[in-house]
Simulated assay, not measured.
Amino acid sequence: MTASSLPVPRLHIVTGKGGTGKTSVAAALALALAGPGRRVLLVEVEGRQGIAPLFEVPSLGYEERHLAAGPGGGEVFGQSVDADEALLDYLTMFYRLGSAGKALQRFGAIDFATTIAPGLRDILLTGKLKEAVSRTESGRMAYDAVVLDAPPTGRVVKFLNVTVESGRLAKTGPIGKHSRSVARMLHSSLTAVHLVTTPAAMPVQETLDAYKELAAADLPVGRVVLNKVSAAKTVEVSGEEVGAGLARAGLGADAALVEGLMSEYAAARAEIEAVGGYRERLERLGRPVEELPLLPEGVDLSGLYGLARVLRQGIEQGVEEPRRADGGADAV
């Protein structure tokens, strides 16, 4: 498979419940997409600063900066998009304010504007994404893909759909035109919203709920990533065997200790055996489901590349266009 055919979307939005590892997945996806000759931009918003530690680099700023080489030979760049800086870009682009925009920032006018109109922040942030996706340099696209570490599932639909509402309110003028162009991109096959979850009841249910919300908003769903899946296998162990093992180790076979260990063993076994059931529920959504392993020591740069290789294999084995969720009852 050639790099140019990987993948159909150009904007990859990664969301998930807090604690599911969506930032790590977004970073790994950016690396996975950085095939030969490809340039990928990894973006975070709302001052999260979760990307830099993963790549072991200083905190990101508004300026795009090289982060790493992709395992496929491409390049990954990073950026932390700030609403104030994005507004300055917007004023320069549409109103040619130039240095006057900086003066507004010094006087606090930009903070005032984004405070009294909270939705304006999301409009600016999503608008900056569109600019990165559509920008050209020297006759070619500046980036082959843009990956966003997005707000969590509980807020992502509101974040992505704010331009639809603003486009309806502002029928004319630059704001209305800008909002509608961003909304068209976010609701097209250029975009894929990827859902990250872990094999546990609450994250999986929130993923299913997010799918329904995306369906209602007519936003295209890409892949579901089942993250932090333990590689451990279940084995039959009796209390007698645990007690004998403790005795051999010279730890004593105290009944309370054996009971406590057996209780932990039962809980861990149930969690491991439940993975298949969670995966089945997610597969009913009709989207590709990728499994990523649990990294017990946490995600460092080496682990990040390992996750990227797993994601790249999944992408290469089945390139599929994102689709709008149908939201039917059978899906969940």
Rank of each mutant, 00 (worst) to 15 (best):
K233D: 12
I51R: 07
G70M: 08
L285R: 03
E273T: 01
F77W: 08
G318R: 11
P58C: 11
G245Q: 02
G35H: 07
P151K: 01
A274N: 11
A331R: 13
V43R: 09
A325I: 12
A170W: 10
L54K: 06
T92G: 14
Y95T: 09
A325G: 14
L301N: 01
G239E: 10
F55Q: 05
K102V: 13
S302W: 00
A244W: 01
A117L: 14
E236D: 11
L54P: 07
P58N: 10
G314N: 09
I272W: 00
L120P: 04
V182C: 09
S188G: 15
V310P: 03
V25H: 06
A325C: 03
M1P: 12
A32E: 04
L54C: 07
Q105G: 14
V8C: 08
G61Q: 05
D254T: 02
G35C: 12
G276H: 14
A247C: 00
I272G: 02
Q105K: 15
T172G: 00
E291H: 06
S230R: 13
K171V: 03
V237K: 03
R279W: 11
K102S: 14
D122R: 00
L208F: 02
E291N: 08
V289S: 08
G277E: 11
S166H: 04
D82E: 11
F94Y: 15
G239V: 09
V258D: 03
E213M: 12
V25L: 09
S179N: 13
E85H: 13
L261G: 00
R121Y: 11
Q205A: 10
E46K: 08
A231E: 12
L282D: 06
G139L: 11
Y62C: 11
G70R: 01
L195I: 15
V221H: 10
V299A: 03
T136H: 13
A267T: 04
T136I: 04
R121K: 15
S59D: 14
V133I: 13
V57R: 15
A249W: 00
V319A: 07
P203G: 06
R248P: 00
R180M: 14
E241I: 02
P7S: 12
K22M: 08
Q205L: 08
P293F: 06
A217K: 15
L29Q: 07
L307W: 06
D82M: 05
E241G: 05
A267W: 00
